[in-house]
């Protein structure tokens, strides 16, 4: 008998030991809040993660706000997804499109700038699905700095709302990354250190 058949047979043999199925109780599926409250909540959570928040009133301002922040952060080389809209692109440093760059090239870049699919207010979480304006996963992983553009309209209240929105994307095979602040560890004497292997600095650019 194959391992597969044997394991399935073993599982089926245990079914008499299973208790009758229990009712799954209701829990919150969304946050009762208007847009303004959601945005405020999200910003507060980002502050908990020591993430800086920049604001742009519309798409037209993104490139300019980004340029200023990249200068403040001294980001000398920037990689972006190749499908990033022109109005988002900063002028300095001149961004380099990820058109299949090697991992070494990505690693050598000082920063990456991308959009995102959505964000979760309650936990200050940003979600990527490698969709438009986000690039592949390695792009937001190897550079030490990440500037992430989040549309205010993309902020949902709580996790179940995010999961509902992600469902069609996952069914299409999209890989999903949730990130909540920069990477962190408390492995040495339980002292929290922010920034381990992912980008050590994360800035969020909120677009109205």
């Amino acid at each position: 008998m194959s391992a597969r058949d044997e394991m399935i047979a073993r599982i089926r043999a245990t079914q008499t030991a299973a208790p009758p199925p229990a009712h799954i109780p209701a829990y919150r599926t969304h946050m009762q809040a208007n847009r303004e409250t959601l945005v405020q909540h999200f910003i507060e959570r980002l502050a908990d993660y020591h993430v800086s928040v920049l604001r742009a009133r519309g798409d037209g301002e993104i490139g300019e706000v980004a340029s200023r922040q990249l200068a403040t952060r001294n980001i000398a080389s920037l990689v972006i997804p190749s499908d990033m809209p022109a109005s988002w692109r900063p002028t300095t440093p001149a961004p380099r499109e990820d058109t299949g760059l090697s991992l070494q090239d990505l690693d050598a870049a000082a920063g990456a700038m991308t959009g995102c699919l959505l964000a979760i207010a309650e936990t200050g979480t940003i979600v990527l699905d490698s969709g438009p304006g986000q690039g592949r996963r390695a792009l937001t992983l190897l550079p030490d700095y990440h500037l992430c553009v989040v549309r205010e309209s993309a902020i949902v209240g709580i996790m179940p709302e995010a999961i509902a929105a992600l469902h069609p994307h996952v069914l299409r095979g999209a890989p999903i990354t949730f990130f909540s602040g920069p990477s962190a560890t408390a492995d040495i004497e339980l002292d929290r250190v922010e920034g381990v292997h992912g980008p050590r600095t994360l800035d969020v650019l909120l677009v109205a």
Partner: peptide, 13 residues
């Protein structure tokens, strides 16, 4: 409230 990174993937992309 949420851990820094959660990854989810389906097969090969």
């Amino acid at each position: 409230r949420m851990n820094p990174y959660t990854s989810l993937w389906s097969g090969v992309r």
